[in-house]
Design a protein around this nucleic acid. Sequence first.
DNA 1: TATGAATGAGCATTCATTCAT
DNA 2: CATGAATGAATGCTCATTCAT
Lengths: 199, 199, 199, 199
Amino acid sequence: MRKTPRQARSRQMVDRIVAAGRDVLVSDGYDAFSTNRVAAAAGVSPGSVYQYFPDKAAIVDVVVDRYWDDVAEKVAAALADRIGTFGPAMVRDTADALIAALEDDPAVLRVVAEELPISRNRDRLTVLERRVRDLVATFLAARPETSHRPDPAVTAWVVVIALEQLAVRWVLDQPPVTRDQLVEEILALVSGYLSFGDR
Amino acid sequence: MRKTPRQARSRQMVDRIVAAGRDVLVSDGYDAFSTNRVAAAAGVSPGSVYQYFPDKAAIVDVVVDRYWDDVAEKVAAALADRIGTFGPAMVRDTADALIAALEDDPAVLRVVAEELPISRNRDRLTVLERRVRDLVATFLAARPETSHRPDPAVTAWVVVIALEQLAVRWVLDQPPVTRDQLVEEILALVSGYLSFGDR
Amino acid sequence: MRKTPRQARSRQMVDRIVAAGRDVLVSDGYDAFSTNRVAAAAGVSPGSVYQYFPDKAAIVDVVVDRYWDDVAEKVAAALADRIGTFGPAMVRDTADALIAALEDDPAVLRVVAEELPISRNRDRLTVLERRVRDLVATFLAARPETSHRPDPAVTAWVVVIALEQLAVRWVLDQPPVTRDQLVEEILALVSGYLSFGDR
Amino acid sequence: MRKTPRQARSRQMVDRIVAAGRDVLVSDGYDAFSTNRVAAAAGVSPGSVYQYFPDKAAIVDVVVDRYWDDVAEKVAAALADRIGTFGPAMVRDTADALIAALEDDPAVLRVVAEELPISRNRDRLTVLERRVRDLVATFLAARPETSHRPDPAVTAWVVVIALEQLAVRWVLDQPPVTRDQLVEEILALVSGYLSFGDR
DNA sequence: TATGAATGAGCATTCATTCAT
DNA sequence: CATGAATGAATGCTCATTCAT
């Protein structure tokens, strides 16, 4: 007749703390992020935080990790029903999925992308990178006859950076560009790049 | 019997403090950046710092501003003797100039781009933006007959973001891409993008 | 189906906790001595500790008490088969027995004598005191004809303090004095003192 | 017309903090000794403490050092006008001077001798040791014809420990021994020891 | 009984900022 | 102007103790 099984209770505490961490990050900013504030926001004592996290940095790390995992999951989900698309359509779909995922929580994106030491975000790109590598590969496979970029690894690196940064800046800076326009421009950028040298 | 006029002395103090700020930022990192440390590094008392800067943030702001001004100046200087180039050559020159400027002080670039809250970098892009706007305009002027990007403002926004981020990441992440490769890829990216839709 | 009667189980818990307390004291020192650590070392939950000890200090007290009881027991045992010796021989035997007892566990002696608030050691001397009182009495009884110390209680107090401290410091400070030398010096000190005024 | 010259002000702060440290140690005990409490007792902010002491331990060290310096000074002063005394008189004088010095501040003596990790007191004995070495040497010089302790270094070690501990315990434990009795017993102890073997 | 999650007061320390000199 | 001693709020973190299960 246990109300909260041991495992679940831990899980719940971690979740509460992470949620509170996210909130503090969003509303107070990274500089004002303190363990005491997180504890207060979680309705928990400072000591309790340390039963679940070894130190302050670990809380931030989990918040960031969860955010990017979330984004990756959304991108994967959005693309799941479109497998099989090729070339341009795939670019469009990927850009669209990424933008959509980033639009979901701009507040955290702002903190994560703009306030955090980049080191905390270092390993987050794996999923996007894999996706882009595939994208580049299938795109090129669809146009085997043409002359194009020589080194696929370099090409993927270029596309990842451009794609990611365009999506992030669009969400955060709200430039005078519509969402559809953005997707079209990304399509043009990537397509033009990948086919460059065609004749 | 005053050696230096008041104005000049102020200027000198500001310079000392900013230089010290830069050094502290580079060697200790943003987290360890403290007014006391800056004062010590400048050989000045903490109180004096507050005669020239309202608070700690203002010091960082000036360091960042000066850094980006410096970059802008270098880019402008590098391009000064190449005015009149068109299209692809201009893209190449711009990319090259930007990379060169960023390579000059990677230590500060690292702090500025990776550790600082991005808000501090907000207004830095004006020069680069103007330059890229010109670049886009002249490029398109060279190919007036072709169909290409519809909105020059949007196009410039896209190119700025991609160009800047590629140059920054290349300098900071040292990816397995040579400098020449990078310039070629940027050229391909921008040229492909700007001419996309040509036939 | 209870394996161990309640009483015995309590006893066992207390023993585990005290043993763990001793270990923590020895390996981590008094400053790092914490109830949680003791509980962990005992393989017991922190809550359980409080079923047997009212607070942290009580654990230390028992560790200390047991240590001194142990020493007292060893001294008594060592002297048991030498009852009947008189004067100098008895001094020598007592000194020897005490040194031997202290040598048995220098690690705990160090903590108990050097790190603990001495108040915790307050009542430990009873056995040694009684033994020394006897020693003084028999010594004097062996030389009834001579003039010597007037007040046996004071005399015993002096001898206890000197004897104990010499033995403890010798064990802990490892001075350049051999064990035999030490015993000889103690003998000289005590004998000289007790017979002082002889002619 | 400066009220407090720079040097003097520092000195004054250090003194205030050390005095507060002493008071906290005496009234709250070593376990409750905290930087915040010291700061409060000194009527100073916690931050100020750290302008004069690198950490908590440093405050304790200075308190202890000052205490023992003080004792050493008093002993030296008390003996200054008695130089030239020999043998028994010198023992009496030394014992008397030491007891007097320790009696002056039993509260601090209690903390220093009973609550502090002994390591903090390690180097304090130099003065007493030198004094005792001299004492032993002159004593023996006065009785060159007699047989006595073989190793002067060992002899001095024994006398230091006994003398110091007897004086300290007498002050702190208030045993049923008068001050004069104590001095007489110490004289008997030391004299008997040093002349032991005489005939 | 035994548990161990939760507590929260407390600690040592830092640092942006002020202000009397 | 320049100083730098002084501040004190705030920080990350610990640990003796409690109490619901």
